[in-house]
């Protein structure tokens, strides 16, 4: 937990500095009415102060109350793999098309997570995909026809 708190305060502090640097270039106040840069700078200062408070508090935190955050175990790796899969899926979705990419993606995930026989997995995936396609594409008029294949 300690380490995580340090990381959190560090990331936010850097984030706040970036905001201040960008917002300083915005037009100034006009006739007493704050310009577009004023609120971003106020909020960024607030972030800096909170990050500092978090940093100091964590420094003072007794080691005994420290808890470990798991970021590397097998089950967390599964999460990273899922994220990667989804990034790939959303990147390919517009070019390949909804029905094909979604059926494939769903089949792989369901097979991986639940170890059902292939035919059952694919049946569930395709039926669900077609259901969503019909619901959004036909009933709700969301344009779902894009991509090369289908």
């Amino acid at each position: 937990m300690k380490k995580a708190n340090f990381v959190v305060s560090g990331i936010f502090a850097a984030f706040a500095l970036a905001i201040i640097i960008i917002a300083k270039g915005y037009p100034p106040s006009n006739h007493g009415v704050p310009g577009p840069g004023m609120f971003p700078i106020i909020i960024a200062v607030l972030i800096l102060v909170s990050a500092l408070v978090l940093f100091i508090k964590t420094l003072k935190m007794p080691v005994t109350s420290d808890t470990k955050i798991d970021l590397k175990s097998r089950s967390i790796l599964n999460v990273y793999i899922s994220m990667g899969g989804l990034i790939l899926y959303t990147a390919l979705l517009p070019t390949i098309g909804f029905v094909t990419s979604t059926s494939v993606m769903l089949s792989l995930y369901i097979k991986w997570f639940s170890h059902r026989p292939w035919w059952k997995t694919i049946l569930i995936a395709v039926l669900f995909t077609l259901g969503i396609y019909l619901l959004f594409g036909t009933v709700l008029n969301v344009p779902m026809r894009f991509g090369i294949i289908f």
Partner: peptide, 20 residues
């Protein structure tokens, strides 16, 4: 960089994905 690439590809994908 990855996220930027992803977002870029999404945007371009949308532009090119038109009906014929």
């Amino acid at each position: 960089i990855l996220v930027t690439l992803l977002l870029l590809s999404l945007t371009f994908g949308a532009v090119f994905a038109q009906g014929v």
